[in-house]
Amino acid sequence: MTMTKAAAAAPSGPSAQIEIGNVGKVYGTAGDGAVIALDGVSLTIARGEFVSLLGPSGCGKSTLLNILAGFQPATTGRILQDGHPITGPDPSRTVVFQDYALFGWMTVQKNVEFGLKAKGVGRAERAERARALIDTVRLTGFEDKYPHEISGGMKQRAAIARALAPDPDILLMDEPFGALDAQTRVLLQEEIARISSEAGKTVVFVTHGIEEAVFLADRVVVMSPRPGRIREEVLVPLPRPRTAEMRSDPWFVSTVSELWETLKPDWQKEEEVS
């Protein structure tokens, strides 16, 4: 394998869990109204690494995440998970959605148990493991509530527990806190920082919040739109687990404002388009 420029900066070798090689995605048929959502995206993600995908609206973050999840195929290029091509959804890669996508007809407990039931785990063990996960996301006491009976933040906690249940290798999160208010968002960021470092999962976290991206990730991958490309990568040297005080770390503060300066033109362009 020849080393590309993008791969040189990223950790690779035996610890690579996801290898995205020159992936492109075109929506619609070429010619009439085809949208190039992704163009030549290459990225290698190490086992246990936390990667934030940061970029303005429409730069293809969700598209890339959906391809990683196996919900849709890439038009060109290839994606390997532990050396094997990704062909469809698999419980080794679970997803947390922006709109939670909880099953409204099931209690929190049953939602969390879903992935265990799919695995064929027995009733009693299922219930016990789900309870432990509900405890991890601090939802104990709400097991028997239905999604419509709990707040947005709690829904997202439940969705995170549900995604952790099948014990995936990779956790994919698409703007999981996008629909939450600022305070809840900050609290959940800290929860995710804690849970992800405890669980030691590989995480791909899509966001357009610069602070959030830097606070959580080992590496921030910045994308730019039209066509969706990787623009730069920022390695975050802060130790994990991340804690609230790190938000005032001088490196953190200056990195966030630098990123804001470099991204401003893209963001502004996006404002004008939409």
């Binding site: 999840a69 196996g70 919900f71 469809g88 959804p89 698999d90 419980p91 890669r93 679970t94 997803v95 959605f97 709109d99 996508a101 909880l102 099953f103 099931m106 879903f114 992935g115 039931k117 799919a118 695995k119 549900r162 995604a163 249940a165 099948p166």
Partner: peptide, 20 residues
């Protein structure tokens, strides 16, 4: 998204039908 959630959690066709 609910369908996708069920699929990525490993739901087989019967579970997809009866539980989702």
């Amino acid at each position: 998204n609910q369908m996708n959630a069920a699929l990525c959690l490993g739901a087989k066709p019967s579970m997809l039908l009866f539980d989702v």
